[in-house]
Amino acid sequence: MDVLNVDYMLGLVPVLLTYLPLTLQLAGVGMVLALILACLFAVVRVLRIPVLNQLTIVFISFFRGTPLLVQLFLFYYGLPQLVSALTVIDGITATIMGLTMHFSAYMAESIRAAIVGVDRSQTEAALSIGMTNGQLMRRIVLPQATRVALPTLMNYFIDMIKATSLAFTLGVTELMGATQKEAAGSFLYFEAFIVAAIMYWIVVEMLSKLQHYLEIRLNKAYSR
């Protein structure tokens, strides 16, 4: 009892590893979709496109202003109550929907800030040599904004990976759900959860390395 049961922990590693891909899939798909959505929102907000701008503001306000777990329950249990056909939304889909909308709301704001943060003189210079709006965005503003937004976007991705641990409440057995059930069978809570914690940690650490590499690449133009 007082000593760590190392054999149990080692035995648990291959079992829990089989659930890691699902955790990464949930976060990976969620991140790609959230990025697309967030870019659209940010552009709508920066260009102040009428109607869409107001709708986006409400969307961001709601998904940033309510807990992710509440949103997951709304998608998974709430919607089928209104429209029974929506039962076809399975746990995995509902989790991805929740992660996408929740995190796109946060990410839209940091992308918008990055775009707005690009110095106005850059825009003026580009326009003065006859660039179109599209060229201005693609060649001048977005490359500079990407560099600014990257660290915060990476933060959200890391947060999203850990947020997938809520999915077991919707019946999706991902890394955390598998760990909870194993711990319930063995009552070796510390051993089970420390194995899971180390797995999350390693994944996030690898992402930090990736972020570091990307930052160096994006900073090339600025280093002397």
Binding site: Y76, Y77, T87, D90, T169, G171, T173
Partner: peptide
Amino acid sequence: TANFSGLFGMLESGR
């Protein structure tokens, strides 16, 4: 399998 607090929601929503 799901957390206990989710089970009745799953029953209610026909899953």
